[in-house]
Structures are given as structure tokens and as C-alpha cells.
Design a protein around this nucleic acid. Sequence first.
DNA 1: ACCTGAACACCGTTCAAGT
DNA 2: ACCTGAACACCGTTCAAGT
Lengths: 170, 170
Amino acid sequence: MDLHVVHKPHRVPVGNVEGLTMRRLAERLAVTPTALYWHVDTKEDVLDLAVDHIFGDVPVPPATDDWRHDVRTLVGGWRAAMLRHTWAPGLIGRPMLGPNVVARTAFLEAALGRGGHDGVRLAVVTRLLANFVIGSALTESTWRATATSATHGGWSDDELFDRGLDAILG
Amino acid sequence: MDLHVVHKPHRVPVGNVEGLTMRRLAERLAVTPTALYWHVDTKEDVLDLAVDHIFGDVPVPPATDDWRHDVRTLVGGWRAAMLRHTWAPGLIGRPMLGPNVVARTAFLEAALGRGGHDGVRLAVVTRLLANFVIGSALTESTWRATATSATHGGWSDDELFDRGLDAILG
DNA sequence: ACCTGAACACCGTTCAAGT
DNA sequence: ACCTGAACACCGTTCAAGT
């Protein structure tokens, strides 16, 4: 057995996913843990519910005639929502198929469509955007949680994200 | 009428984070669970070790005179490594600070530097790339795991990822 | 230096039973 | 339809003790 710990920054468990417990949830609902299983099949189910709930917090703005602006608004709200709920990162490793997610994705594709995207290009840019937000929110909130605050350069997460969007949207 | 008469043992998906247990790890190492705690402070530590171990699988190619090619090779290998280890997605929500990660990031920045990037632009593109891979690997392996196989269009994950890279690298 | 055994305070989930 | 109590099969971690 040869395990070597290379690095050990002080870490706070990211958000509350690890702390989300059937028993704890039951207690908050003033109910017995076993009672939850009448409403839900498994803990996975409540996690899925939590995921879609987060995306309900992402504002879907009215569509304007500036499609780029619309994309930025939605995607910015997406990232913000994920950062607001520190437990999101631990949750995003699961299917995002709820109605709230679907609605946001539809808005995104519609805006890109107004920008002249269709076919593969539409699929490519949609994925690029979505995966960029997800990756960003994940790493940012991870670093935020470790509180190492390395500040690798003089640029904020917000600025780097924004300019990343510039690079994608042209 | 209930078919699940027998006590259902814990579902243990091999090869994913949720299945990684101190006790299970100890067993594989032919050792007592408590023995692990001489080598390691906490389970978090072994998770961190696992993370960096994954990135050790990402090949660092020799630098060529085609910086774009170098970037694609590294980033493609990065995604592949993450997809190879199905448990990676659950792990990436934690600091990637090990030596293997640092080496890969350095290579990436060097290649981008050869492409004329510096200052903010270097930081922006590095982040964009890294967060895109992370997000991609995460969502792809999630969908793969749920096996919904929706095939939203006629395009493969590989193709969409590749063309996403096109969009980023110009 | 390295490992064991026993113990503590937790988990998710099932089942029979109550209302 | 909705909830409880008891139980099962697990967890991570600590601590004293052995070599």
C-alpha cells in the first residue's frame, strides 16, 4: 500500500450535497425518514428534483432583437444560479432532463436560431455554450470552496467567463 | 404481489465514485479499513489522489510547430481520459491541483502561447478550453450512464466536441 | 513505522403495521 | 392515502493496542 498525499489545501465540503441526507431532510419536514419513501423511490429522485429546481431559478428573459444579448442573459443567469446554489456542482453529474432545463435549452436554441445558426452549427454552439457554463460553474465554485484564492492573474472569474462568451459568440 | 420480496442488497455500481469506499478499498489492498488512516487523513485525500491519477493518463505529446494540433491532442486526450474513467465526473467537483494536472495545464498554456496568446487572451482561452472539456466529459458520461441514447440529432459527441474546438481555436 | 479490533455515530432502504 | 418503528446492511473515522 503506497499512498502519497501530494497536496492538502484546506477544504470545506462543497456545498450541501454531501450533507443532503434522507434522514436530515425528513427531520426538516418534521417527518420520519421512512415516510419519504412513500413520495419518492430513492434518494436519486430527490437529487433529480433538486437539480431541476435550481434551473427554475434561471430567469428566462423576453426575447429581444439582439440574439447575442439574449444568449448572454440566459447563460449568465444559468451560471449565476449554479454558483448561488453551492451544491449544484455535485448535482450536475446527473441527467438534466426536467422541464425547467428543457425550457432554458429551448430558449437558448431559439436565440441562436435567430442568430442564423441551424443544423450542425446550432448543435455545436449549443453544446459549446452549455458545457462551458457547466464547466465554469463547477470549477469556480470548487475553487471558491477551497478558499485557496490563488488569483492566478489579475482577472476575475466574471471577466474571464464574459470574454469566453465573446470568443464563442464572435 | 410485490416482486421485491427479498431484501435488496445495496446497488454497487463498480467504477464510480459512489462505490469508492474506504472499506472496499481496504479490502482490495488486503488490509483493514482502519489501516488506511495511517497513510491518509481522510477519504477526501484518496479522492484527490484518484483525480490526479486520472490526469496522469492524459498523454502529454511532444510539442510540434502546429500549436493548434498540440492543443487539440492534449484536450482530446483529456476528454478521453475523463470518459474512460466513468467515475471522473463525480470527482471533478474538487480541486485539480496535483502535479499531473499542473503539467497538462502548463503544456496547454505553452501551446496557446506559441499561437500568439498572452495576457488576458491566454487566460480566457485556457479557461474556455478547460471548462469546455470538463463540461463535455461530465454531461457526455452522464448521458452515457443513463443510457437514454436520445441522439438529439445526427451528430456524434465526438463530432460536436471537435467542432466546438474549431469554434474556439478559429 | 505500520497494522488490527472494537467501537461510535452515522447512512439509505425495506418491511410490517398503524391511521 | 400517508405515516411510524424497528431492523438490515452498510458507511467514515477514532482510539487503544499490537508488531
